[in-house]
Amino acid sequence: MVHARALAVDGQRAAAARALLRAENDLASAEAGDDEPGRVFFFGEASLAHETACTLRDMGDLASATKEFHRSVRTRKAATFTRTHAVTLGYLGAVQARGGSIEEACGTWAEALDVMDGVHSGRARQAVRDMRSSLSVYRAKGIRSVAELDGRAARYLASVGR
């Protein structure tokens, strides 16, 4: 998955797609009892969907990225992996906004901020900074959900130290 993401960021779409398929096939072929390093205990369907979504996003396939982010949100054990769940929601909102669905993005980002309550993480802070950056385009348009969300995001950042 890391290889697929790196290839996508580098603009090597075909190679990224091949690496993505290879990772998905490897995970699908895993069986109960297969040895795995302790450091990867958490990498299951939700993690695969998250990383797949990030790769697809970086390749410019926003529709497929949205689908995979939704799968990650749906399958993640949010109570156990709260920070990752919150960050995934942040990324999903960003993809929705990039696709022109700002109201949907605001709803997703509001959920992300709900989950982030009490979360102190560099990735969470960055997701909120990115959220505010995406919202900046809409601030002057008087969209109530944007103004409310932007205020919540600013308060979150102030509470956790920018």
Rank of each mutant, 00 (worst) to 15 (best):
R98P: 02
G99R: 09
G122Q: 15
Q96A: 07
V95M: 08
G118R: 07
G122E: 13
A112N: 03
G122T: 13
H120Y: 13
V119M: 09
E103C: 09
H120G: 07
G100T: 02
I102R: 01
A94V: 04
C106W: 10
L89C: 04
V119F: 03
S101D: 15
A105W: 00
G90H: 06
A97D: 05
G118A: 00
E103W: 11
Y91M: 12
V119E: 11
A110Y: 06
I102H: 06
T108W: 01
Q96D: 05
S121W: 05
V119T: 03
A94W: 07
T108A: 03
L113F: 12
G93R: 03
W109Y: 08
C106N: 11
V95R: 00
R98E: 15
T108S: 11
D117P: 00
H120V: 14
L113C: 12
Y91Q: 15
G90R: 03
H120K: 13
G122N: 13
A110E: 15
V115N: 05
S121T: 11
V119H: 06
E104V: 11
G107F: 05
V95K: 01
L113R: 08
A105Y: 01
L113Y: 10
V119I: 13
H120P: 02
G118N: 06
A97G: 01
C106T: 09
H120I: 14
Y91S: 12
G99P: 02
T108P: 05
G118H: 02
